[in-house]
């Protein structure tokens, strides 16, 4: 495998002190190759979201190294914050709350272009249409407000927004957890399609082992701030070495998610935009 796009080495992060002391990251090692989808799975409170916030530069590690494209994160966030933001984008759990509900969908999708001073009004509008269509939405939705869209449509908008700058890494923090199971499968397939089309790497965080298995190339299992298991998706799922991973797999609710990447149904795209 080529040089890693993102690498975390022995990252520690503790919140609070005394009784409220919580070890959110206890020596995390994690690496994502360009174009790879890494699933990060664990129950709530296991430190998954802290890893997302660390990678997004919203939280500073107590110790350890985080490197992106072979350079330390601190360096990126300092002088080259804009450049880093263009390369690493995020999709969050609550699609409605992640958008400014006063702004139109088109405005929100174009916002990264405005922030990064790319293009003019006309080219931005064209890009918004292109992005909406690329996530399976009708271009007319650009004029709507988030409150007028369904959860699945909103998450597609958030994905379009995250893709506006053609990032190299997408951090998806419980990106399908708030969606209906049927919509979940469609959005997961959109993520896979995006990965294939753009070669974007993903850190895909979820508490749902079935979801993570469906989408990931490799899986990292976290428990109380520790990485308890790490490996190829099939290997982790079929022959888990840790008790915790075995318990997580045992607790699958078996949502109706297609078994493998190959069995995707392209018809869901048109359905979702209706």
């Amino acid at each position: 495998m080529s040089a890693p796009l993102l690498e975390l080495r022995d990252v520690h992060k503790v919140f609070g002190e005394g009784d409220t002391r919580t070890v959110a990251a206890n020596g995390i090692d994690l690496s994502i190759a360009p174009g790879e989808i890494v699933g990060l799975v664990g129950e709530s409170g296991s430190g998954k979201s802290t890893v997302a916030n660390l990678v997004l530069g919203l939280v500073e590690p107590d110790s350890g190294d985080i490197e992106f494209e072979g350079r330390p994160l601190a360096q990126w966030l300092g002088r080259e914050n804009r450049a880093y933001r263009a390369k690493v984008q995020a999709v969050f759990q609550q699609p409605l709350l992640a958008l400014d509900q006063r702004r139109t969908v088109g405005w929100s999708i174009a916002e990264p272009l405005v922030v990064h001073r790319i293009g003019n009004a006309t080219s931005r509008r064209e890009r918004v249409v292109e992005l909406l269509e690329s996530v399976g939405l009708n271009a007319e939705l650009a004029e709507r407000r988030p409150g007028q869209l369904s959860g699945g449509q909103l998450q597609r908008v958030n994905i379009a927004r995250a893709l506006t700058l053609e990032p190299r890494l997408l951090v998806c923090d419980e990106a399908v957890s708030a969606l209906d199971v049927s919509v979940q499968a469609q959005v997961l397939d959109l993520f896979l399609e995006v990965q294939e089309r753009l070669g974007v790497a993903m850190l895909f965080i979820s508490h749902n082992m079935a979801v993570v298995r469906h989408i990931s190339d490799s899986i990292v299992v976290m428990y109380h701030g520790d990485v308890v298991e790490q490996g190829q998706a099939d290997q982790v799922c079929d022959s888990p070495r840790s008790d915790y991973a075995r318990a997580l797999i045992g607790s699958w609710l078996e949502p109706r998610v297609p078994e493998s990447r190959e069995s995707r149904d392209p018809a869901v795209r048109s359905e979702a935009s209706a």
């Binding site: 997004l56 919203l58 914050n81 804009r82 933001r85 263009a86 690493v88 984008q89 995020a90 969050f92 609550q94 709350l97 992640a98 958008l99 400014d100 509900q101 006063r102 702004r103 916002e111 990264p112 922030v115 990064h116 958030n158 927004r161 951090v171």
Partner: peptide, 26 residues
């Protein structure tokens, strides 16, 4: 602490942009 502010930050928006475009209009 709202999520849309966090999202705007991860887009690369500066504090003043987030205030002017998202928060003050509230």
């Amino acid at each position: 602490g709202e999520l849309y502010v966090k999202a705007a930050r991860t887009l690369g928006a500066s504090g003043s942009q987030i205030l002017r475009w998202h928060v003050i209009p509230q």
